[in-house]
Amino acid sequence: MVDVNGVRLHIAEQGTGPLVVLLHGFPESWHSWHHQFDPLSDAGFRVVAPDQRGYGRSDHPDDVEAYTIFHLVGDVVGLIHALGEQKAYVIGHDWGAPIAWHTALLRPDMVLGVAGLSVPPPFRGTEPPLAAMDQRFGGRFYWNYFNRPGVADAEFAQDIRTTLRKFIYQASGDAPDAGEGKQPLVDPERGWLATMADPEVLPEWFSEDDLDALTESFSQGFTGALNWYRNLDRNWELTAPWHGAVVTSPSLYIYGDRDGVPAFPGTPELIAKLPELMPSLWREPLKLAGCGHWTQQERPDEVNAALLEFLRFLRASS
């Protein structure tokens, strides 16, 4: 447990050497990186993965506004300092990716290199994201469903293990309709889980032990995690000074070709333009065939190889 930025964060840690911070997404925990600990630490890196605020054994502030992009980036900055370091490599998946990208955007002096999995680098749009999706999809986009106080919280908490099993399968490359570009729309009356398949057998890469660990991490419910989404428009307002700014730290982007997130409105076009938009991009975006949303868990060998090549190159260049 580490005191950081006004909250206590639970971390998992392994190895010695240059610091690598691994940031999980929704609905996950530090455990989503368990395939990365041995390879990265064996390569001479100090690997730290926190349960981010609102998740797992870390603090869950009650105030919705305690989950803005500034709080979340502040947690990363505070964690790096609390671990006795001034700089780190920062890697994130899903929601962890925007936190990693924004840490590099707001504190480039502290980021030796940044990698994002699933979610590409941030380019601030011209309108608030919740409002934009509400208008585009008539309030049915999942961000808008999550924004209704207490609603998704109650639905997901009814049976935590089933909720997580459905989420993991639905967004994985194993789901029959994965990669078809369907937008994640929710019937606001029936909820989201009603339309999700409940697999009889988990995907080969996600064991019952993994599901046990994930279920335990949500024993305090989903409200803290959902509060991240409830700040999307607030984050858009707060980041106005960085409109048009780009990440300058050396960068790597990895995603699966069966992941629904890179198919969000406007995202395919952004990914295609990344090499020209971001001169710091170390290589063209790495697209993993047959991979769904849970990138580092579904394709650990390929992700580890890419991360190690990136980190070793940057370490040798420093």
Rank of each mutant, 00 (worst) to 15 (best):
T267R: 02
S58K: 07
M278E: 15
T239K: 01
T267D: 07
E13R: 14
R140W: 00
S172L: 00
G292Y: 04
L112G: 08
V48C: 12
T267K: 02
L202Y: 01
G56Y: 03
F45R: 06
H102V: 03
E302M: 08
R161S: 09
E85W: 00
D94N: 14
A175S: 15
P176L: 10
L83I: 03
A131D: 14
T223G: 00
E127H: 10
S219K: 13
Y55P: 06
R124G: 04
L286H: 11
H293V: 03
S172N: 02
L106R: 10
E284V: 07
P149S: 07
V4R: 02
L211W: 05
P98L: 08
S29V: 01
R283W: 04
W95H: 06
V247H: 03
A171I: 12
P61D: 09
S172P: 01
R107I: 05
E269Y: 05
E180M: 14
E189K: 14
E204Y: 03
P39N: 13
P184H: 08
L22R: 01
G266Y: 10
P188Y: 11
A225P: 11
S172E: 01
T126C: 07
Q158C: 09
V47Y: 08
K287Y: 00
D212F: 06
N235D: 15
W143S: 04
D187Y: 11
L277N: 08
A82H: 13
S118A: 14
G191Y: 05
P128H: 13
D257I: 12
E237W: 00
V2K: 08
D59I: 03
P129A: 03
T239S: 08
W30K: 08
D75F: 06
M196D: 11
Y55D: 07
G292N: 08
W228Y: 15
G92D: 09
D210S: 12
T103N: 11
